[in-house]
């Protein structure tokens, strides 16, 4: 007897509560890919909320995606602090010169007003428009950079590491500013209609910062920040190793955890079970060269490894599908989810 298919919202909410929905939810995290969909340059595309809304709706229809993704690009947040973004062809914009020249500048930094940032206002407008159109049928996923990871764009990695290791008072000051901004930004997106916030925190990965240092810095920051965000969060480490910190990240109060292709999915599933829902882990760069068969096999394998009992959403492992991945590959991934991800799993 066939069951009535769930809506995307029901499917995702069931998976997040560690139960089996009708099938494994699919989150193709398509951001700048929308520019390709509409035949525009990346800069032109992100200049209007209406473009993002139109592309998100068209791509969901085409790929049977289970979410809308209102992430524009990471440096849109540092634009709010006064820096520039550099647009390139067929890829995400790069953050420009850091707004903080020296570590001492941290003591003069204040959190910007969301309402005064044209870029952030466009994201909020896109979120509102999507919410008006879809109501509660499809989750809308917003993004906020974690206060702990944002400084890589604000001051550069090298000076930030000096702060983490040797300048505690400057580090604490920067976290205070960034936490206020992150909470305001995440809550503004939730108020505009986002269902959940993806809390991007690449520096939480032991690939980037050793666990012992993360535990007394970024983990404490995440606990404080996530407690003030008025909605569900999904923490994403953008391809960094996740397994060694899965328990610690689950304890920050986040509901979902992103993982990449470097992690061991079987070990991760065991550690995450009942604690945090997993989202991952297709390798976006390998997807550029996949055949249809490779797409099917990879999806099949990861569903076998992580799908049982729910608590799993299929996605890429980085948080953004590259422009260079073909539509055929995305369609093959989408078909494979329906073929191999229907519960009960075979």
């Amino acid at each position: 007897m066939s069951r009535q298919p769930m809506t995307s919202m029901e499917r995702v909410m069931t998976a997040i509560t560690h139960k089996e929905p009708d099938r494994v939810p699919l989150f193709l995290l398509l951001s700048l890919y929308g520019a390709k969909e509409l035949g525009m340059t990346v800069e032109e595309y992100f200049n209007k909320a209406e473009n993002v809304v139109a592309a998100q709706r068209a791509m969901r229809e085409k790929f049977q995606n289970d979410c809308y993704y209102t992430f524009f690009y990471a440096s849109i947040e540092t634009e709010a602090f006064g820096s520039e973004s550099f647009f390139v062809e067929n890829g995400p914009p790069n953050a420009g010169v850091p707004i903080l020249d020296t570590i001492e500048d941290v003591f003069h930094l204040e959190p910007p007003e969301i309402s005064e940032s044209p870029g952030l206002k466009r994201v909020l407008r896109a979120t509102e428009m999507l919410k008006e159109r879809v109501g509660n049928e499809v989750p809308i996923i917003g993004v906020a950079m974690s206060p702990f990871s944002l400084p890589v764009m604000q001051i550069g990695f090298e000076k930030y590491l000096e702060m983490i290791y040797f300048r505690k008072e400057a580090f604490d000051r920067l976290m205070k500013v960034n936490e206020a901004f992150c909470v305001a930004w995440a809550n503004a997106q939730l108020a505009a209609g986002a269902t959940a916030i993806c809390y991007f925190d690449p520096l939480a990965s032991p690939t980037v910062i050793e666990k012992e240092v993360y535990m007394r810095t970024g983990n404490v920051v995440a606990k404080r920040t996530i407690a003030k965000i008025r909605g569900a969060t999904a923490t994403h480490l953008a391809s960094g190793l996740t397994l060694p910190v899965v328990h610690e990240i689950a304890q920050t109060g986040t509901a979902v955890l992103g993982f990449g292709s470097a992690d061991d999915p079987v070990a991760l599933k065991k550690e995450a079970e009942g604690r945090v829902c997993l989202i991952g882990n297709l390798n976006g760069l390998e997807m550029v060269h996949w055949t249809r068969e490779q797409a099917r096999q990879t999806v099949k394998t990861v569903i076998e490894q992580c799908g049982k009992g729910g608590g799993f959403i299929l996605s890429d492992g980085h948080g953004e599908v590259p422009w260079q991945v073909s539509e055929e590959t995305l369609l093959a991934v989408s078909e494979a989810v329906r073929l191999y991800g229907t519960y009960p799993l075979k």
């Binding site: 990695f157 590491l161 032991p206 690939t207 050793e210 240092v213 190793l241």
Partner: peptide
Amino acid sequence: KWELGTVSLAQVYM
């Protein structure tokens, strides 16, 4: 050790 995932990029850099 970084390749094996037992030390961090920050440790390599510092």
